[in-house]
């Protein structure tokens, strides 16, 4: 609840706002129209620079996503056929590789059995 003095002050200020001269009102209207136009332009139009920057960023992200795949040197999962590719690249006799794998398997089995026997 406003006291009489406050009420009178509000009315005086309202009168002042209502009695603005034509030139001031005209300029206020122009400013308002321009402000609304600015808000409209800002939302509907991305500046050319920003569009270019957006395109650049998208291209950068695409390259960044593809690049690790191109330079991957240590596969995390052994892929069947990788060994063959390595053998082909190194030009090693396939029989030697198979023998090596066999001996590796044999030693693993032998060690396991030896361990079991030792503990028994």
């Amino acid at each position: 609840m406003k006291n009489p003095l406050q009420q009178e002050l509000i009315e005086a200020l309202d009168r002042r706002a209502q009695d603005l001269d034509g030139a001031t009102l005209s300029r206020l209207r122009r400013v308002r129209a321009e402000a609304v136009q600015q808000a409209s332009t800002r939302r509907s139009r991305l500046p050319g620079g920003w569009r270019l920057a957006g395109a650049g960023l998208a291209l950068g992200l695409l390259v960044a996503a593809l690049l690790p795949g191109l330079h991957q040197t240590t596969p995390t999962q052994p892929v069947p056929g990788d060994e063959l590719l390595e053998v082909a690249i190194l030009d090693v006799d396939l029989e030697v590789v198979e023998d090596l794998e066999f001996y590796e398997w044999l030693s693993e089995q032998g060690l396991g059995e030896t361990g079991d026997e030792g503990s028994a």
Partner: peptide, 17 residues
């Protein structure tokens, strides 16, 4: 934008004062 125009139109005189 119509709402923005109405808001600014409502407040502009008092803002100027």
């Amino acid at each position: 934008h119509r709402a923005l125009d109405a808001f600014l139109g409502d407040v502009e005189r008092r803002a100027y004062v």
